[in-house]
């Protein structure tokens, strides 16, 4: 038995192809990104080691718009946390109190998740179109002509207009995760509360939501990380930051630095910044939730 399951040749045959590819295309690139972020390099000439200068340049060169991109990205993260997740939670709670078309709602809410962000972005370009887009057409038919504007080209609305499809697309995803969490709560808990005469809100407050904390941690982490690394939808919707860099996101700055300006060092610094940010936020969220769990045993 051990001879069969300890067959070295077979182990190598099974593991090595995936593992070697993984090392070359995933692990090595992470290390390389960090290494490049410490160099001055345009991809052609010599590399020179410059320490943390790239990070300094990233933050203090105004024309890169990096600080704007960090602000925009954090706004998306905040909107996810304070609007998208609460809404997803509310939907998950409402769908599970015994409405008629539970499966239908869950399935429908999730539909935008399976469509590519690229197509969604292009669709919203049309929806926001000044002359024929759905939004302005609806406003006009309601007699709100004065509200119409070129949503994505007006500096005061572009950012918020771009956030709508971002939030819209993934609400169903978070709702589904929370839904699965609610379904996993032992029914005895809910039944005994009902027998004791607890109302829906009390059950949510004292049983469902406390039981759901681990899943909330998962969705919050996914939402924040998803926001920090957002690229496709913003890139297409705002032509990577238009008007005038007002809507740029972090990965958009990274893209510009690397592929438009051939500034590999500073671009890699932006990439590493995103990785570090993801790790830090994951840890912060974990910390908050573990604190919470210890506080209410």
């Amino acid at each position: 038995m051990n001879k069969v399951l300890g067959n070295k040749k077979a182990i190598a045959l099974f593991t090595l192809p995936a593992f070697l590819l993984f090392l070359c295309i995933m692990i090595l690139p992470i290390l390389a990104s960090f290494f490049f972020s410490l160099q001055k390099w345009d991809g052609l000439g010599e590399m020179t080691f410059v320490g943390l200068r790239n990070y300094e340049k990233l933050f203090f060169t105004d024309s890169y718009h990096f600080h704007v991109s960090v602000k925009n990205t954090l706004i998306i993260a905040a909107l996810s946390v304070f609007i998208q997740i609460p809404l997803a939670l509310l939907l998950a709670l409402l769908v599970t109190i015994g409405v008629k078309w539970e499966n239908f709602y869950r399935t429908v809410y999730f539909i935008p998740v399976v469509i590519s962000s690229s197509a969604i972005a292009q669709l919203f370009l049309k929806i926001y179109n000044f002359d024929y887009g759905a939004l302005n057409t609806i406003l006009r038919s309601l007699g709100l002509e004065s509200w119409c504007r070129p949503w994505l080209y007006d500096e005061s609305t572009a950012l918020w207009a771009a956030f709508v499809p971002v939030i819209w697309q993934h609400i169903g995803y978070h709702m589904l995760i929370l839904y699965a969490g609610i379904k996993a709560i032992p029914p005895q808990l809910l039944d005994s509360a009902k027998i004791d005469g607890a109302g829906t809100f009390r059950i949510w407050r004292y049983i469902t939501i406390p039981q759901l904390l681990p899943m909330l941690e998962v969705t919050l982490t996914l939402a924040v990380i998803g926001a920090l690394k957002i690229f496709d939808i913003m890139f297409i919707l705002t032509s990577n930051g238009e008007p005038l860099g007002a809507t740029i996101v972090q990965t958009g700055v990274m893209y510009k630095l690397i592929f438009e300006k051939n500034n590999y060092g500073t671009g890699s610094a932006a990439a590493c910044f995103v990785v570090a940010e993801c790790l830090i936020f994951t840890l912060i969220i974990r910390r908050i939730f573990h604190h919470e769990r210890n506080a209410q045993p």
């Binding site: 295309i25 692990i27 090595l28 690139p29 690394k229 690229f231 690397i258 995103v274 994951t282």
Partner: peptide, 13 residues
């Protein structure tokens, strides 16, 4: 690998 944002490794790849 699950933790790595794919966008962050695009240049090396």
């Amino acid at each position: 690998g699950i933790m790595v944002p794919s966008q962050a490794v695009i240049l090396p790849i």
